[in-house]
Design a protein around this nucleic acid. Structure first.
Ligand SMILES: [Mn+2]
Ligand SMILES: [Mn+2]
Length: 412
DNA sequence: GTGGTCC
DNA sequence: GGACCACAACGCTGC
DNA sequence: GCAGCG
């Protein structure tokens, strides 16, 4: 028996509020060996900056009650039993439903949220005081597979140019995964529809200025090896991991605000729960000035009028309401796990070496799908780079996991 | 992670 | 007191 | 209804 037994709970005094942390010694990140209390202490060490990103905004809770290895669940409605230093805001949806979400405003709120099992914080782009008018436009740069950091950076700087041309200021941060977020503070004067239109317009303009490097196309098979400018992240009821959020990845990466002159030379993997507190103590928060000068969307909305409606892909009609793809796609397998999906793809490539040799990385589409109650994976191949005569046909699936197995279907 | 039930 | 269980999300935007 | 997002 070692002398250090795992404590059941500890109580912290955080800015005059007592916060209970249960199972403080529970290991949340096995690889770097970070415990729940380590995560609490991380957030407290960067609390002012983390609150600049997530404070005062309603947020969705993503809870990892059993560590990052186990499945997490989302929680919109704040637990009834919340301390009085937790604020709330009630969001109303188009269908008439609503959800009372948590709003944190101080370091105690951060500690309390982490105790629930939350790692990344996912606030809406609105303040609790005005739930219908976002004060933040979010540029979400999502690299397709095979895209390297320098290309992401090139796209980020094109986005910065476009912002500059319409009189806006962008504040970059690593997403904490492979991509980059650029935040734009705006006056809370436009509704979600207009903010999304502005974001879509910016995305189209970035694609126009950097064809091949960036895309604003929604359908994955049409994107190629490019950086997707995910303008839909600005629709209502969408959230983004906020600045200084800990991401549920093995190395405990942090979504880290950067100075523009750091963007090209730094890498997402440099910033973790272990490294970011020292950086913050050293240089402070690169986003400290984000609230100083809220911008206007007039320029982007004018550009939207100039560009006109976006070109839509040809209307696909196969009768069933399903979209007809514009690309020569074949489905290879459906599997329960990602390794099985990758194995199926490998098997297919071994069976079709000639075609496989001509695939580009972005032509291999392995997507996590939401089934009736679980996750499954779909494996597809885009044969656009394979000459028509050499294209393998759609065959029986190599693996055919049924995500609805076990469900009873009324009337069939 | 929390709160309720049942022995 | 301890074991066990239920519960904790789902909306938006096109096609 | 479905895809594709978080
Ligand atoms: Mn992203
Ligand atoms: Mn995205």
């Amino acid at each position: 028996m070692s002398g250090v037994s795992a404590r059941k709970e500890v109580f912290l005094d955080v800015g005059g509020h007592e916060v209970r942390i249960s199972s403080p010694d529970k290991v949340v990140f096995p690889e770097p060996g970070l415990t729940k209390l380590d995560i609490v202490e991380y957030y407290l060490s960067v609390s002012d900056a983390a609150l600049r990103g997530a404070g005062g905004r309603p947020m969705v809770l993503k809870r990892f009650v059993k560590g990052i290895a186990e499945e997490a669940f989302f929680q919109k409605r704040v637990p009834e039993n919340h301390p009085d230093f937790i604020d709330t805001a009630t969001l109303h949806y188009a269908r008439g439903t609503s959800a009372e979400e948590a709003v944190i405003r101080d370091a105690a709120g951060l500690a309390w949220i982490v105790n629930l099992g939350c790692l990344d914080l996912n606030p809406h782009p609105v303040r609790a005081e005005d739930l219908d008018h976002p004060d933040e436009l979010r540029i979400d740069l999502d690299p397709m597979p095979g895209v390297d950091w320098s290309q992401i950076v090139d796209v980020a700087f094109v986005a910065r140019e476009v912002l500059d041309d319409v009189g806006l200021v962008g504040w970059p941060k690593t997403s904490g995964s492979r991509g980059l977020h650029i935040l734009v503070r705006i006056a809370p004067r436009w509704d979600f529809r207009d903010v999304r239109l502005a974001a879509e317009t910016l995305a189209r303009e970035v694609e126009n200025r950097a064809p091949g490097l960036a895309t604003a196309r929604w359908w994955k098979e049409e994107r190629g090896e490019s950086v997707f400018v995910d303008f839909n992240q600005n629709a209502k009821d969408r959230t983004v991991a906020s600045a200084y959020s800990v991401r549920p990845l093995p190395d405990a990466r942090v979504s880290t605000p950067l100075e523009w002159d750091e963007v090209r030379v730094r890498r997402p993997e440099e910033f973790t729960v272990r490294t970011v507190p020292a950086r913050y103590a050293d240089i402070g928060d690169p986003h400290e000035g984000i609230d100083a000068a809220p911008g206007t969307l007039d320029g982007l909305l004018q550009l939207a009028a100039d560009l006109g409606p976006a070109e839509k892909p040809p209307r696909g009609t196969d009768g069933s309401g399903r979209r007809a793809s514009t690309m020569p796609l074949i489905e290879i397998a459906r599997t329960k796990t990602k390794p099985e999906a990758v194995a199926a793809l490998t098997q297919w490539k071994a069976q079709h070496p000639a075609a496989a040799a001509q695939l580009h990385p972005a032509d291999e589409l392995v997507d996590g799908m939401r089934g009736s109650s679980s996750l499954w994976y779909r494996v597809r191949v885009n044969l656009q780079h394979v000459p028509e005569a050499e294209r393998p046909p759609q065959e029986k699936l190599l693996a055919d996991y049924d995500p609805w197995a076990g469900k009873t279907w009324p009337g069939r």
